[in-house]
Design a protein around this nucleic acid. Structure first.
Length: 377
RNA sequence: GGAGAGGUAGCGAAGUGGCUAAACGCGGUGGACUGUAAAUCCACUCUCUACGAGUUCGAUGGUUCGAAUCCGUCCCUCUCCA
């Protein structure tokens, strides 16, 4: 197997665990937060920024790179790593999320999904085979199965059909990838809020030879309790010797809840998107830096953070950048927010190793001002 | 001095008798954002004792059931010519 998972420490308090995932482009400790670089760039950042932040693995996106500049172009460039100047691991999402996010522009069929291009209206067709072909051209370390990310809420009947189709597509992805021994492939567990379907989907996928298992279809508007409940029933079905990836989750509270339940990998656009929109995640909670209260606040964004932004700039300056529409603000907040989540998972790893993860989680919740019912970032 | 154009909410700018407390843009103030159609989107932005009420469209006096819109006078700005 191209992707190796080595368990380093299983928490004695809960399902949380520390492991090492090895890929063709290096290894990283889990739990880990992966920044998202959909179009071959973690928006506003260069490789050195990500290295300084401590990012070991980032994401790229099949659907978007397929459309622009085209996977063949990336292949000619020498693959996505070389094209975007990233020397560590890359995980590519399959386009399955676009089945959800571009719902108004697509039609799902057994053979695949027909999209109307979001910019030029062109007819597009993405299937399990094509998604694998694209990801092989991109040369990511970890590829994702092409799935349907169903919406929430969703009827049981629809979900059941969707899960069965996603399972058939998972088989097709494996078939299309048989001769590939340089990239890993993860299966995606769907089933929405329905425990029975989640367990069924997980059990079926576990029978297939994937390098890791991910839980998809979360953070699509469902309450937090559902997300945790899903993990409670799915994780026990998953093997101990493979990584577990919760897709699209990036709020501090949800990440810690999931780590507690045995999740190893996370990705989310939240830190980079809200950064560009002027919001920061800090030790003591969310800061909307554009707000007037920071106009003359000459303290760091987060005085417990040692990221490039917090070491060098003040809240007043950051607010100024946003009010003046200066791009540096987007960049500095992106650096900070990603590092916040990277450090959050790093802290979790240390806590797990020291058998004090639950205490760690309680402290983060308390400092951040989170509770089990309210907003979790 | 002569000819012309114009003065609308913080700014720019629509509106030229009732559907106008007054479009729209900017600015301002809040908020949202979770496998990125996102440097995006939403709300509020005359005043108040605020699901109602009160004052507005340079000033003032008229016409009219009713005026930012029509008429008189005054003030101010800009352009061109002397």
């Amino acid at each position: 197997m191209v992707i190796k998972y080595q368990l380093k420490k299983q928490s004695e308090e809960c399902q949380a665990r520390v492991g090492i995932v090895t890929t063709p482009h290096g290894s990283f400790e889990t739990p880990v937060f992966m920044a998202v670089g959909t179009q071959g760039t973690v928006k506003t950042l260069v490789k050195e920024d990500l290295h300084e932040i401590g990012s070991q693995i980032i994401l790229g996106n099949t659907y978007h790179l397929w459309n622009q500049p085209g996977h063949k172009t990336v292949e000619k460039a020498g693959g996505l790593h070389k094209f975007m100047n990233w020397d560590r691991s890359i995980l590519t999402d399959s386009g399955g999320f676009q089945v959800f996010s571009l719902a108004k522009l697509r039609d799902i069929h057994e053979e695949g999904v027909y999209f109307k291009h979001h910019k030029n209206g062109a007819k597009l067709f993405l299937s399990p085979e094509i998604a694998i072909e694209i990801q092989r051209s991109l040369g990511s370390d970890i590829m994702m199965c092409f799935d349907e990310c169903p919406p929430y809420p969703c009827s049981y009947e629809y979900m059941k059909n969707s899960v069965d189709r996603t399972l058939r597509w998972a088989n097709r992805c494996l078939d299309a990838n048989k001769d590939n021994n340089s990239q890993g492939l993860f299966g995606i567990i769907q089933g929405g809020e329905y425990d029975e379907l989640r367990v069924y989907c997980a059990e079926e996928l576990v029978k297939m030879p994937f390098d890791g298992y991910s839980i998809g279809g979360t953070s699509v508007g469902e309450p937090k309790e559902i997300q945790n409940k899903v993990l409670d029933c799915v994780v026990p079905v998953l093997p101990h010797d493979k990584p577990r990836y919760l897709m699209g989750v990036g709020s501090p509270g949800a990440i810690l809840d999931a780590i507690e339940r045995g999740i190893d990998m996370f990705d989310c656009v939240l830190p980079t998107r809200i950064a560009r929109h002027g919001t920061a995640m800090t030790t003591n909670g969310r800061v909307i830096i554009k707000n007037k209260e920071f106009a003359e606040d000459f303290t760091p964004l987060d005085n417990k953070c040692d990221c490039y932004c917090c070491k060098n700039y003040t809240r007043a300056y950051l607010r100024h950048l946003f009010k003046a529409n200066e791009l540096l603000g987007h960049r500095l907040l992106s650096i900070h927010n990603i590092q916040f989540l990277v450090k959050l998972t790093e802290g979790a790893r240390e806590a797990i190793k020291n058998n004090c993860f639950l205490e760690y989680k309680r402290k983060v919740y308390s400092d951040y001002g989170l509770n089990d019912n309210g907003k979790d970032f």
